[in-house]
Design a protein around this nucleic acid. Structure first.
Lengths: 342, 342
DNA sequence: TTTAGCACTCTGATTAGTAGAGTGCTAATC
DNA sequence: GATTAGCACTCTACTAATCAGAGTGCTAAA
């Protein structure tokens, strides 16, 4: 990355700030008017020209102002942006917004997602905490009818999974007792990831109990345990993106893209580090080429990690959004850890 | 409602069918070309003119073809549309689509919503079954830490609600036992709607137990019981509406409208009868003036009702969508009832 | 009652013209 | 050598004008 003169840096930063604010290409005169710089427009023009050849700015067409290129945004985020901490008002908004959900992990995540989408006017994606360290805390079988029961599985992350299951034979006290025995001996306290359809079969065969009676229950355990590792990816606030002029018609295909689980999951999961900012084509998907994605990880109990992410136009207000996302995701991690504390 | 001649009825039906198919205003020549009617275009013009003065058709402008008015759609849905049953392919698609979720109420509703949104290319809204007859089936307190526990409440509809709760004192065996006693005596088998913050207080005061220890638990029960009656309104497939030319720019404000819980809830709940079709301004909301809403109720155990609804442009394919919605919602009702059967 | 013929109307697409914003270059100035 | 004023040039966004086409309503004949 070439070293830029102080003035170039300042001009680049100003152009980006102004463009983020107005959405219009920034011209030399307009830049001076908006920032009160002391040099003349011709000087700015010369500098902008060089920033253009260096690839930090680009022109929509010959006689328009400049807009930041992807490289420009990257340089801005890495070097120019003032990495201020979250401002006081936002902090209070966040604290107040999630206060009603502090004790409950699921609610907390939901509220945070909604809140952040509102604050940033972007789409927001949340995932529940998952990890190898997810232990099975409790499995409960709640009878619903003579042949049916709701199976409820609680993990060490406070994530609850449930599923109705049906037995061929009657759900007798005897069956229940045997089931709870197996649960106690083989499942409680074990990592959810260890439970596979194969291991289930072995266990079902090894216990002193009718194989075909207990098998549907074991299968249900296996399914629930498996599903603890799907990360409960949920998208919110996507309609915020619709009214942005940045996207125009392309908002439609963007929304259709975001509504598909698999690619979105891939986008979120391919992030590095605690807080990852990916600009434009740094996201591998064509549909995100004029969007930026900010993924922030939070950790629960030091082991399991979930994410809170923002998806919006490359022309998003990085300077305020990044601190907000970081603050909120830290908070979520801490609060969930605390809620689950002994 | 004035009685129309057979030919007028036929022309009206044909115009609407064609307009639904093409989205373009229908002219006299085009109508004859598309339907193979035997009279001349001049005759059709005369008839259309009368249908126009009667209010069943309207012209976007003087020299364009006709499009159905709201009154026209209403007459079509009530009198002209062939109320065929769902076609074979659709039936198979639906059956196959939900087969993996048959035994589990929550999954079943989710799959149905997604499926119907795909089939109809419209937005689809589902609600879980609720009603005065919703009984509390089970309340379970799953310890998570020394001071915290996950409370799980299961209703007779198979709907599961959960919430983490925190005690000031330790969650001793003694406390748990007393709690389960209260649950058994006061809650199990009772309608969820009966439980109010006031009744909770009375109960907490009346039992032989430390009031301040048991109160947080009682409060949690009250909250969960109260939330069983929120209908879990969920919207899916709304991005389908974006690419429809019917809406143009207005798609944005429509989506923003649909993403708000309260008005959407109102729209769904203000429906009458088992299957309600509301066209354009028959919906009380300005934002729905060029949309139609189809609300179909399903019932579980004969008492509790949920809904599956379609929201799309007034120019939707009523003839195939209505039977699909009806078929699917009946199926959902039956399957949930069956899953919960003794 | 139906139909052929025709004048009329309105839209939507295309073209031409214009004002304005912004640039890059040159030459003068600090 | 860096900065700046001046200017010719370019490109867009907007407006107005034109025109073909689709469709109508009306009249008069069948």
């Amino acid at each position: 990355m070439p070293e830029l003169s102080e003035r170039k840096k300042q001009i680049l930063a100003n152009v980006i700030d102004l463009y983020i604010k107005t959405g219009e290409p920034v011209g030399s005169k307009g830049l001076i008017a908006a920032t009160g710089m002391t040099c003349s427009s011709a000087t700015v023009r010369n500098e902008m020209n060089e920033l253009d050849s260096l690839g930090f700015l680009e022109q929509p067409h010959t006689s328009a102002g400049r807009i930041p290129s992807q490289k420009g945004y990257r340089y801005y985020v890495d070097n120019l942006m003032q990495d201020k901490s979250v401002d006081d008002l936002t902090k209070r908004l966040i604290d107040a917004g999630i206060s009603s959900a502090v004790g409950d992990p699921e609610k907390l995540i939901t509220r945070s997602r909604e809140l952040l989408a509102d604050l940033t006017k972007c789409a927001c994606v949340s995932t529940a905490p998952v990890g190898d360290a997810t232990l099975i805390r409790k499995i409960e079988l709640v009878p619903v009818g003579a042949h049916t029961a709701m199976m409820v599985l609680l993990t060490s992350n406070g994530i609850l999974k449930s599923r109705l299951c049906r037995l061929d034979s009657e759900m007798s006290v005897d069956v229940l007792e045997k089931f709870y025995n197996i649960v106690q001996n083989f499942f409680i306290g074990r990592p959810a990831g260890e439970i596979s359809p194969a291991s289930i079969q072995t266990i079902a065969a090894s216990v002193d109990c009718d194989y075909f009676t207990i098998l549907p229950l074991m299968a249900a355990v296996s399914e629930l345990a498996g599903s603890t590792n799907d990360s409960r990816l949920i998208l919110g606030g996507s309609s915020n993106l619709l009214s942005l002029k940045d996207y125009g018609d392309r908002a439609i295909s963007l929304l259709e893209f975001l509504n598909k689980k698999e690619p979105l999951n891939d986008v979120i999961n391919s992030s590095n580090g605690l807080l990852d900012v990916r600009i434009g084509t740094e996201n591998r998907y064509k549909q995100l080429e004029d969007s930026s994605v900010i993924v922030s990880k939070y950790s629960v109990n030091g082991d399991n990690t979930g994410t809170i992410s923002i998806i919006g136009p490359t022309r998003m207000d990085y300077e305020t959004i990044i601190p907000s996302v970081r603050y909120l995701s830290d908070l979520v991690g801490k609060l969930i850890t605390q809620a689950l504390e002994e």
